[in-house]
Structure formats: C-alpha cells, structure tokens
Design a protein around this nucleic acid. Sequence first.
DNA 1: TTGAAAGCGTTACCAC
DNA 2: GTGGTAACGCTTTCAA
Lengths: 349, 349
Amino acid sequence: MPTARRTAAVTLHDVAREAGVSLATASRALNGSARTVNDEYRQRVLAAANKLNYTTNLSAQAVAKGSTTSVALLVGDIADPYFSSIAAGVIKGSEDAGLIVTMSVTERSSQRELELVRALRGQRPRVIILAGSRSSDEEHQAELARELEAFEANGGRVVFVSQHELPFDTVRIDNYGGARALADALVGLGYTRFAAISGEAALLTATDRLAGFTDGLAAHGIRIPDEHVVTGGFTRDGGFDGALELVDRGLDGVELIFAVNDVMAIGAMSGLRSRGIEPGRDIAIAGFDDIQTVRDVTPALTTVGIPLFEVGESALAVALRARDADAERDLSVATSVVLRASTPGLPAS
Amino acid sequence: MPTARRTAAVTLHDVAREAGVSLATASRALNGSARTVNDEYRQRVLAAANKLNYTTNLSAQAVAKGSTTSVALLVGDIADPYFSSIAAGVIKGSEDAGLIVTMSVTERSSQRELELVRALRGQRPRVIILAGSRSSDEEHQAELARELEAFEANGGRVVFVSQHELPFDTVRIDNYGGARALADALVGLGYTRFAAISGEAALLTATDRLAGFTDGLAAHGIRIPDEHVVTGGFTRDGGFDGALELVDRGLDGVELIFAVNDVMAIGAMSGLRSRGIEPGRDIAIAGFDDIQTVRDVTPALTTVGIPLFEVGESALAVALRARDADAERDLSVATSVVLRASTPGLPAS
DNA sequence: TTGAAAGCGTTACCAC
DNA sequence: GTGGTAACGCTTTCAA
C-alpha cells in the first residue's frame, strides 16, 4: 500500500553523500557527458542512486543547463486518426532521441492555437511542432508568427506540418498534387461528373485539395458545377452532413463524390446510405489521407495516401537537424493515389 | 524572417527592471496567488511583461515551488482510437485545470511501461495516468508498483485506467460485466453457437472480456468450444488474422464471432470477407468499446459502449481530488450494450 | 505592500 | 580527476 506520509524526494545531494563523493562528481557520474570520472567513483555513485531510487529532477536540470528535453506537439484533434498517426510518429522519433513529448489540442481553432503556443513557450521546449494548423486567418497568423519567431530567437525550433505560408521549417504534404493526381486517375476510370465535399474556406488543407482536384479535372475539360460543391466541418459528421446536403441539392448525374479527407468521406458514405444511396454502386466516392480504417469500410475507399507516421517522424528529424542557414526549409512527402472498390471503373460509354 | 541571432530569453529580472520594481514584486504580480500587490505596480509589471514578450520559465518555477503543472499520460498506442479517445479526455480535463499533458506510448509492453514510468518520474509530474496497462506480468508488476509508490510518497498521484490489480486509484471499466451483458443480449437475439477472438493471455482487458462473455453464455447453458476461441494481437491485424484462423479451423455452425475489441472486430470483418464470408449475413459479429468508426463500417457493428472521453476526464478528476484517506479508490464507469446490424435477430427456430 | 536574500536541485567553471 | 561554488530563473520567507 502506498505510504500516506509524504517524504521529500531524494536529491543529487543525497546520492553524493551516500556515495561519499562531491555533488559535482555525482552529477558528472550520473548525467555528465564524457567519461571524466574515475570508474570506482562512478560505480559507487550509480549504486547509491539505485539504492536511493534517485531520478534526476528534469526541471532543475533544465534550469541549470538552460535547455529542456521536451518537444511540444500541437494537433487539431487527437482522436482524429490523421493527427494521431502523425503524433505516433512524433512520439516515436522523440523517444528515440531521448526527448519527452507534450501534447496539446487546438480543437482546430487558430485562436486556441495562438494561446497554446504562448503557454507552451513557458515550457521552453526544444521544439514546437504544429500539425494541422494552416489557417489562413490573417490576424492570428501574424501574432502566431511573432510568437514563434521569439521562440526561435531564443534557440527553439519550429516545424509546421503541411502548412506553407509562414517562414518556418515545414514538412510539406503535397495536398494539391495528390488531389490533382486523384482527379486524373478518376477521369481515367471513366468518370466525368463530380461533386465535392470540402472544409471551411479558412482551412488551407481543404482548399488546396479542392483546388488540386478541380484543376486536375479542368485539365480534362471537366468542371464541377458550383451547386455540387458543399462545405462542412473537417470531421466525420461534416462529411455526413455534406452528403445529405448534396443529396438535397440534387445529385442528378453525379457519378462520384470527392471528400477532402477520409474521415469526411466515410461520414459521407454513411450519409448517403441513410438516404438509400449505396456508395460504390449507386455513386462512387473518394477521400484523402489513406487512414487505417478506409481498408475496412465497405466498399473500401479510394483515396490519396500520405505516410502519416513518417510525416511525424520527419517533422522531428527536421527540427533536430543542424540549423543550417542555407538548408532547404521544406521537406516534401509524396502522396500516392490508391484506387479501391469505392470507385469502380466505368464502362466506356 | 526569423532572426538567426540567438537572443537570451527574457527573464523575470528583465521584467522587474523594466517595470522599476523588485524581482519579488514582479513575481507576485505575475504568478503570485492573492492580490497582495498594489494595483499600479501590478499594471506596470503586466505592461512590462507584455512589452518584453515575457513568459514564465516553467522549469524554474517548478524548481522553486517544488511542484510542476504537468500530467504524464501513458498509453499503449496513440493511433488506436481507444487510447486516443481517452487521451482526448485527459487533455481536455488537464487544460481546464491549467495543466500540461505529456504523453508516452508503451507499445503495449510492460517492460517499456516500466522504463517509461522510471523516466517520467524525473519530470516530477503532478499526476501519472496509466491507460491500458493491465498486464498480469508478475515481475514487472512488482517493480512498477515500487516505482509508483515512490512517486506517490513524494506527493505524486497515480491513476490507472481499467486495471485493478495494483493498489492505486483507478477508473475501472466494467469489462467483465459489459461482455456478460452482451452475451446475454445476443442469446436473447437467438444466437446459440459462438466463436471468439481474444488477445494475449497477459492482457487483463482481453481476458476479463472473454470471461464475461463466456460466463454470460454459460448462464444460458451455452459453451464456446475451445477450438472456436483464438488469440491474437490487440489490433486490427490481430482481428483479421484471428478471423482467418477461425475460418481455417472450421466455422461450421458458428453463428456469431465475438472479438474482444472493436478494432479487432473490424479487422475480423475484413478477414472474413477476404474469405468470401459476408459479415452480418453469413455470420454475425460483435466487438467492444464502441469507437467512432463502428457506426460507419458495413454492417454497423454491435458492441459494448464505453464513454472513452469521459473515462479520460474522470481519470484526471480522480487524480486531482483531495487525497482523502478513506475515499473510495475506484471509480467505475458503466458500459452499455449497443445492438447494430452486424448481429441481426435470428428467426426463432 | 514591498524588497532583500535565502533557497529549490542541477550544472559548469575554476582551482587544486 | 575531483571538489568548491557561482550560476540558472524563479518563489518565498523575513524584515522593514
């Protein structure tokens, strides 16, 4: 049973005393870099630390060294597979580098994002990674940039995932190109009449994908009529509602619905079904991201793959690499079209 | 463009000087609790802090106060919706309480879990929340308990999610009861011949659920033959493979497959399909957890619902409540059977 | 209410 | 190599 009495945590001081060496030596033996300490002493210190169940006080260490071992990660919504996959990559990379990751969620609000970055600076993390920011909100962008610049000026590193409007390192996801390639492949399958479910206009990810898709179609002389483009939340429910709205507006002739991300596409499939329209048979559907579950929905979803886990790992790698003046600030990860049963080939007409 | 020159971070000292007050006053104005500082001074300090873009160095504050504002969360796999939903709850609760959450993943290894707890102690978090531990591995359990007790002895709080073998506060999920209720409901639907896909024997969550299920059936005089119980990883692929193995062993007569969690159940559905068996039509299937996506797979999955987000919030609430000697250490969250299309009612025979 | 100064647990510089 | 000791940035007595 855990002791009720609260004992003081054992400090390096205690360890040093126990081992019969100086504070300095104990410090060197436990955390000091090079082997500058006599092996016998080292052993004694290690033994004492172990005996006393000592653990370095990271805060104190941070104050003394002037730097921490933490990475701050900002995501829009951790329960969204897009973000949790990226987070998994960031965490993996961090643990390999001996870093601790702290995580906050912006709830996709740039207001909240700004507040969090401000608060996070107090943590003095080595790195701040912003995933799924990409708001085009002018006012907050400027404030955010100021905050982030101050952070970098003090030696911190900033990495964005996906966005490209602020002058910081970014792991860029080729949303435009991926969507464009998807459009191309779909036309190749014989589709000619499309509808789309997009996200709020302020979300760059959504607008880039939609732009890529429409441009891809345009290259084949195809246009999506305005009334066949709806906008909704970047979530499953957003997709569900978007599909309903599309149905209400009239889907006459539409052969395929493109949702700007998989979660929305999956929601859209359920939305269509709720109206008696069977995805993959009555209408084709495609998404973006290639999250795990798209393989298990019926029909399996056509989408654009992004190596999400690697994106997370790369973000950390970028942050940790030498801060080279003329290093390329952007790292691009490739996307790839994955055709599945939700977009069966159309018979040549 | 971010400055290349690295400037020293602004300290409380700078703020005090700028405001023309003492260090102590600046500290009190910025972080001190009660209003013990003259309003004019307070304003001046606030203005100075704002002007200099100051943020409190949390590490230094932690050293001085002897306590941090962080919560350490351990999960098995952040990309798993079960954990990410709980994490979302923990994060929400923490942010409301002004706490920062740091997150680590154990990869479902109790070895790794132990290492992480050791490392985490250095952080001196206010709280350590262990979600999805529940290993019955004797050796690690003892070591883990020792580590956690030391942590509590120094004033930290420990909360487990779901487990119940160690003497710490826990938000208990009624895995046994939920599975039992599920079995009951299924029998009520007319099912009599079952198979199950479980997790490794060391995973208490898996064994509890299986036990509840079999006991629930037993109450109706039904037994699952040993050859119809397979074991696999606690993941989508584990479910997929489990289904294949079941098929290979011979599914003759089996009407319903129970997978001990939704992710596995969804994998199992795909596994069955890959063998030409249509879930919901040729065979029924049920899972556990009621994660978001079970609504969107076809057929929608019958499962046992757990308020995952609330579980996360509760875990934090439990950790933050007064450390009352005779407070009930366990908080139980209810589960609820949710019948969906994957288990259609059977015609009375 | 305010300021001086003594910590908090580490690290790092500087002699020895 | 090793030990003393001044930082690190903050909070919190303790007097004034």
